[in-house]
């Protein structure tokens, strides 16, 4: 049976990244596009997901709001995609080529439980 799996990409948050040139940007995007394209070519992509900006907020009880960036978080979420796979093992196999692994990050895989079940 085909399930959906959420892939969350995490890596150390670097507070002051120098802005990338268009060429650097393209060079950075290519491995990601090739990897996602490879998953899509096997018809295993459910949603190409998104990249996430570094800034954000965390809302806690009693109206406590923390502004990002989160210096205390070593592993910030940088983006996500959704796969369709027959098993967690297959989802893991598909994740092995993720470019985040080459820059010291990691991929967290979670099974999606459909709302109507």
């Amino acid at each position: 049976m085909t399930n959906e799996f959420l892939l969350v990409f995490r890596r150390d948050y670097v507070s002051k990244e120098p802005p990338l040139s268009p060429e650097q940007m393209q060079a950075m995007m290519k491995p990601w596009q090739d990897w996602i394209g490879s998953i899509a070519a096997r018809n295993k992509l459910s949603n190409p997901g998104n990249r996430l900006a570094a800034d954000g907020m965390v809302i806690k009880p009693n109206n406590v709001i923390t502004n990002g960036p989160y210096v205390e978080i070593k592993e910030a979420i940088g983006g996500y995609i959704i796969l369709k796979a027959d098993s967690m093992e297959e989802a893991a196999e598909l994740s092995r080529g993720c470019p985040i692994l080459n820059i010291g990050g990691n991929v967290e895989i979670r099974t999606i439980i459909p709302m109507d079940n």
Binding site: K30, Q33, D34, I36, G37, A40, A41, R42, N43, L45, P48
Partner: peptide, 16 residues
């Protein structure tokens, strides 16, 4: 890169 994006929009065996 165009095929990578096309497949993300819509899978087809021929595009793969």
């Amino acid at each position: 890169q165009l095929y990578n994006r096309l497949l993300q929009l819509e899978y087809s065996p021929i595009a793969a």
